[in-house]
Every structure is written in C-alpha cells, then in structure tokens.
Amino acid sequence: MKVAQITGPRACALAEKPDPAIRRDYVLLKVEVAPMCNEYVAYRDGVYLERNRPDSLGHEMAGVVADAPEGALLSPGDRVVALCGYPCGTCELCRRGYYSHCATTEDPLEVCKSESGECGFAQYAIKPARLCVPVPDGMPLDHAAMACCGLGPTFGVMRRIGVDSSDTVLITGLGAVGLGGVINARYRGATVIGVARTPYRAELARDLGCAAVLDPRDGDVRERIRALTGGGVDVAIDCSGRPEYQRLCIDAINRLGTVGFLAEPGELTVRVDDDLVQKGATLMGSLDINLADAGPLLRMISRVPDQIERFITHRYPLDRIGEAFERQSRYECGKIVLYPWS
C-alpha cells in the first residue's frame, strides 16, 4: 500500500509498505478520507507530536471496513469513522468512555504483529473495532471524518462544561481545531468571540459564525473582550497551546467562568488566589469526546452540512500532500482532507 512519509526538511514522498495484518479485535480499514491535523509541524519544523514519525503520519480517518475478525460487530463494507488513538479498552477510564485519557495505551503493530497500519496517511489502517463508529447512510465520509480532531475535541469539552445559548465563548487558536469549536458553539446557540492573527482564518471564523474576531496585535485584547462582554466571557477554550493565549483565556473569563485547555504543548503559571480562588474559576484539560458522544456528534454533523463544507476548505489526493503541508504552514486553510486512493 501507499504511505506518505517525510523525507527531509519540507520534503515528503509516497512509499510502499506491506498491507497491514489484523488480530484480536482489530479491523482492517480501507482509508478513504484522512483529515490533516498537526502533522505539518513535523514537515515544517521537524517537531513530531503524538504518534507521528517520519513514516507514520496522520491520526484521523474514515473509510470502509475491508476485513474483520470472526464475531466482530463490524463487517466488510461497513462505512466507519475511526476515533483517534489506541487506548487499552479495559482500564476504568476506557470503560467510562474517556478513551483519549487512557494511561495504558497499546501498540497496534505489536498487537497485530503487523509491519504497518498505525497511521491515517495511508491506503489501509488497523483500528480496534470499538473505536470505529458506523457512519449514517447518506453522510459523506469527509463530513463524518470531522468527528475526529475537526469537531471532536471542542464537542467533548463543551459537553463537559455544558455550553448553552446563554454563554459567550472565547476561542483562541483558530486553526483546524478552533474553527471546529466555532461550529460546535454556534450549534449550541452560544455567542462566539475568536482570536486570530491570520486574515484568512479570521474571515473563515466569521463565516462560520463568530460574532467578533480580534487580532492580538491590535491593542489590549483582554480589555476589548471585557468591553464586548460587559466584564468577561463565560467560557474560554484554548486550541493554540501558546502560553500567551492560555493566559488570555484565564484573564478573559468572568467570575465562576470555565477555561478548557485542548492543545497539548505549552507551559503556564497559574496564580492560585487571583486566577482560581477569587474568581471561583474552573480550569479543565480535555482531549476528545467521550465514546458515548460519538452518536450525538455525528447527528450534529448531519444537521450542519453547509458549515462542514465551509470548514473543509481544501481537498488533495495523497500524492499532493506536500502542497497541503505548505498551505497549512501558511495558515491559509481551515480543515484539509487527503484522499489516499485518488
């Protein structure tokens, strides 16, 4: 099968790998759609996050079951979206549905005794059946694939916080995750304020429903947020991982407000008295959805097809991944999807 790999600084190519093998409860997926997330950081800067390696890229995918073990709940031909990661499936957190917070993740290649299959930028992948969610009839696979990092992280944190139509939500880091947060917040009826540096993403955020998008280079953003809200926002969600934006989120919430941190990099000093005790604030870390929320998330996606189409700004065949990486590196995109069989 064909697999994308990074071959050097700002260089990539397709390579051949053996088709994956499956064992235990794993299924073989023919990857039809592979959304792009933070892999461009490895391409551009040589920084490998999460499970990324030069020859193993991509953690989001949707496709068709090509093979399944006997007795599996899935059958060849089923259309599914595969949720991110390889949690153990047996710990307390996994049993409660919080698979993304599993502390005892497994190596899929070791489980399946396979030479390949752990990444999405490839024609085939292997996934535990429990993480493969059936896609409703009539839903395009590229829309369903937004249930991964495109919409999943912000959907999950907003469910935990309980965001509703009475809330004003600040979103910092309007990239492929933060822009999905605009869709989620607007679906819940909330008012959204965004912070973005790039004109392309600021305009896209407005198109998706942001009431205001502030450029942090144009004056004191904290004071502008206070002026817009009459004191502060109810909820702030950071999708950037940048300490200055994380600090802004804490400073921008009103008393009894909540901050959700989604981006993994970053280091922040928190003043316990001023930031937490006096404000009565809640700081929350979150990754993806709870497994039980996969169905509700797909139902939401089915109800906002026009927003999903605007959110997916670019589509490329896998052999043009270099162009996709360059566009991501310029921040001139929303969500980009790759098609491994095109």
Rank of each mutant, 00 (worst) to 15 (best):
P340K: 00
V235D: 02
D293Y: 04
Q278A: 12
A144P: 04
P18E: 13
A292H: 14
G232W: 10
Q5Y: 00
A227Q: 14
I336S: 03
S342K: 15
S240K: 03
L29D: 01
R24A: 14
V65W: 02
S100G: 06
E115W: 02
I193H: 01
T172Q: 10
G280Y: 14
T7Y: 07
E92D: 15
C119V: 02
A212L: 08
V47E: 10
E110D: 13
R197C: 02
C12V: 11
R226H: 11
G230N: 08
L298Y: 09
L83C: 09
P128V: 06
T7A: 04
V195K: 02
C249A: 12
P305R: 04
R51C: 05
C112G: 07
A125N: 04
P340Y: 03
T172P: 05
D25Q: 09
E60F: 01
L141Q: 10
L14F: 06
D218Y: 03
V233W: 04
I289D: 03
A145S: 15
I161P: 00
I250L: 14
P136D: 14
Y331K: 09
A82Y: 00
T269Y: 06
R10V: 10
G46S: 07
A144M: 05
S302D: 12
L141E: 12
V195I: 15
V3G: 00
G58C: 06
G117I: 05
L29P: 01
V304K: 00
R303P: 02
R327A: 04
D238E: 09
L214Y: 02
C88E: 05
R315Y: 09
V41G: 00
A185F: 04
L14I: 15
L297P: 08
L29T: 06
H59L: 00
E244S: 13
D25R: 02
I289Q: 03
I250A: 01
I237K: 01
W341K: 05
P128E: 07
S56H: 05
A292E: 15
D167W: 08
C249N: 09
A185E: 10
V277Y: 09
E264F: 14
C102P: 10
D19N: 11
D218S: 14
G175Q: 04
D45L: 06
S240D: 07
E39I: 01
D218T: 13
E332W: 06
R330Q: 14
I126D: 04
T258L: 03
Y43P: 00
T198F: 00
A176V: 14
G181V: 03
E39D: 08
L318A: 08
L208F: 04
D107N: 15
D142Q: 12
K335R: 13
Y187V: 13
R23H: 08
I193V: 11
H59Q: 06
M158Y: 11
L283V: 07
M36I: 11
L228G: 07
W341Y: 13
L74S: 06
G280H: 13
V235A: 02
D319H: 12
E39Q: 09
D274H: 12
R79V: 10
I301T: 04
T105D: 09
Y48V: 11
E203L: 10
D293S: 10
V163K: 01
R130L: 10
G178W: 01
R327K: 13
T154P: 01
S286H: 13
P87Q: 08
N254F: 08
